[in-house]
């Protein structure tokens, strides 16, 4: 067989998708009329009750609805009903802001911790305790103290995406090869110049790996945070459609959350490749 690996993998992916969609379609077919009811009564009931339509939508329903959303992604029907494009925009903006703040704090602090064994040991217990806290546990505290739900969401993104970056930066900085630092020392390079020209390029791949983990976490957190505070964003959209028990829209949102998460990850992966160097 001379078919290249890429093509074979692609074909297999399509096959898996087709099997999945087929199974989904078969599993969610209706059961036909379930019970006899007077037409007057049936008029007041939903399709699930009258025609035995499955409560779980099939792939066709999702496809039709998805097309409707894609046709007008930026509609605005008031503060509680906006198009998917706008909702995603809000979510990405929140993630971007919280994440940027985390970068601004995590990278310098990570440098400090990595370069100073004293700081490293002194701050370690705090980092270890704060790192595993779930984003939703921060939410009530943030709402109560910051007194603004928009800022609270950004704060939660910040606090959750901070730790992987901080730890990776500290680790990357501490793991710079001793020889390079010794060479710098013999050349009498100052502390700031050493950090900037020797340590930063050497630690960059590790730092960016930390940033890549963080963006994934930030995107996970935003959906949960927006479901809680509401208003705008893709998390709010999921909540609002769940409210209406519209599983079709929830599935569409899940699909989009996955796609955007993948895109964000790819951007960081590309950046990581740019700073990686062969030793």
């Amino acid at each position: 067989m001379n078919i290249p690996l890429g093509l074979r993998a692609g074909l297999l992916s399509i096959l898996v998708l087709a099997l999945f969609l087929g199974a989904w379609h078969l599993a969610t077919r209706g059961t036909g009329v379930t019970q006899q009811m007077s037409p007057e009564y049936a008029k007041l009931m939903g399709l699930t009750a009258t025609q035995g339509k499955s409560a779980m939508p099939g792939p066709v329903d999702v496809g039709i609805k998805l097309w409707e959303h894609l046709k007008r992604p930026f509609y605005d029907n008031g503060p509680n009903d906006k198009g998917l494009g706008i909702q995603l925009g809000y979510s990405i903006a929140r993630v971007g802001l919280g994440y940027l703040l985390a970068v601004l704090v995590a990278v310098p602090l990570g440098f400090l911790i990595g370069m100073s064994p004293l700081m490293s040991r002194a701050l370690d217990p705090f980092i270890q305790v704060l790192k595993p806290i779930s984003p939703l546990a921060w939410m009530p505290l943030a709402l109560y103290t910051i007194k603004d739900s928009g800022l609270s969401a950004i704060f939660v993104i910040f606090i959750c995406s901070l730790w992987p970056m901080l730890i990776n930066t500290a680790f990357g900085v501490a793991a710079v090869r001793k020889e390079w630092l010794n060479v710098a020392r013999t050349l009498e390079v100052g502390a700031f110049r050493r950090a900037y020209t020797v340590i930063l390029p050497a630690a960059a791949p590790t730092i960016l790996t930390g940033m890549r983990i963080s963006i994934g976490i930030a995107w996970l957190v935003i959906v949960a945070a927006e479901m809680l505070v509401g208003g705008t964003g893709i998390g709010y959209f999921v909540w609002n459609e769940w409210n209406n028990l519209s599983i079709v829209n929830v599935i569409i949102a899940i699909l989009l959350i996955g796609l955007v998460g993948m895109l964000l990850d790819q951007v960081l992966a590309r950046l990581t490749r740019m700073v990686t160097f062969p030793e």
Binding site: P79, N80, P140, S149, V229, G230, G231
Partner: peptide, 15 residues
């Protein structure tokens, strides 16, 4: 007036 949909009673209280 903007009427804003809210996720739950605790959140509406805090907001």
């Amino acid at each position: 007036v903007d009427v804003i949909k809210t996720a739950g009673w605790a959140v509406i209280r805090d907001k």
